[in-house]
Simulated scan of single mutants.
Amino acid sequence: MSARAEFWRDPRRWPVNVPGFVFAARAVTEVGKAVYGEAWTGAEPISNDPFNFPRIPLLGGKLGRLTQSSAKPWQKESINSLLRKHRPEFGRTPVEYRAYGPKPLVFSEDEWSAGLDLAEQADESLTALRARFDGAVAHIVRACAEGELVSALRPKEGGKMSDPLPAHMWHTERAAVRFDWGQMNPHKPFDSGVGGDAYQFVYFGRESLDRLKASISKAGTRPAQQPNEVSGSKAKAFEREFRRIVDASPTRRTHSKEALYKLAHQVSKREVDRIRGLVLDDYPEETMRAWRGAGRSAQEIDAG
């Protein structure tokens, strides 16, 4: 389990709320419920990252599934864990560690195929969970950057709240790291670290947070520009999820086309492409360029 997940899993480790202020983790939970309603499960902050196993280019421009020969050790270990948990009939055993390292894992054709199926199924849920968490954080960051949400810092050992942080403190692509442990370094506010001795806890003003949630609830789910052109429950579900993904990262593409096809595996690729185009038509030019252009390759996106 990652350090971020451990922190989020146990609210007893979170600092107390201060009169008039709400700790960052609790604010994310409140905004998540306001944005996603019943779809917010509470598991979003502690979910694992999707596996996103890469597809292998084939002749004719097609893409094949990850093969054993090209898989990395951690990918094989992930497949082994999935099979042990969900397909016990295969009789897979834990990874055996020896003096020189783990014993190489070998799978039958049926085991490897079943493991990839399980990984793809897990990715559907994990991608949606991660998108909702990122979406809630994005709402908070955007509100702070636009001066709508009051933010402040408190020393970890306790004491007086800082003066409200100016909006420009949130004008950065690194703001999301402040929600890993709810901390920020006041001396290096644009650092990419998540915590440490020099860091302080991040809080948000209660009144401004309530106003933000009220505005979200009043606005509701933004309808598609051409709602009549997207029909069917699966297609509509993908449309909503894709909007949330783009909202979470409007200027940096985080999902390749292949990742979107996997996310909407019950929708045809042609329909995914069409919905993707309709959704992006609603966004500013900067967002359209980021998500429509050639951008980063699928391998680069998978690598983060």
Rank of each mutant, 00 (worst) to 15 (best):
67 T>D: 08
173 E>M: 11
35 V>C: 09
149 L>R: 06
27 A>M: 03
102 P>R: 15
98 R>C: 03
211 R>M: 02
244 R>A: 08
183 Q>H: 08
40 W>E: 00
65 R>Y: 10
267 V>L: 04
159 G>K: 10
282 D>T: 08
177 V>W: 09
114 A>Q: 10
15 P>L: 02
203 Y>K: 12
152 A>K: 00
195 G>I: 04
167 A>S: 12
299 Q>H: 13
70 S>R: 15
178 R>M: 11
117 D>H: 12
283 Y>T: 05
32 G>M: 04
231 S>F: 01
103 K>Q: 15
265 H>C: 13
94 P>M: 15
302 D>H: 14
87 R>A: 15
281 D>V: 08
115 G>I: 05
201 F>R: 01
134 D>G: 11
259 A>H: 04
153 L>P: 03
298 A>W: 13
27 A>S: 07
78 S>C: 14
232 G>F: 06
102 P>C: 09
245 I>G: 01
31 V>N: 02
154 R>H: 09
51 F>N: 01
57 P>V: 05
199 Y>N: 08
196 G>P: 15
22 V>C: 04
5 A>T: 05
165 L>G: 03
166 P>D: 00
158 G>P: 04
217 S>W: 03
302 D>G: 02
25 A>G: 07
33 K>D: 01
267 V>S: 04
118 L>I: 12
66 L>C: 12
216 I>A: 12
25 A>M: 10
146 E>F: 05
61 G>K: 09
174 R>K: 15
151 S>V: 12
233 S>T: 10
115 G>P: 06
50 P>S: 03
162 S>M: 00
120 E>P: 01
41 T>M: 02
73 P>R: 13
100 Y>V: 09
113 S>D: 14
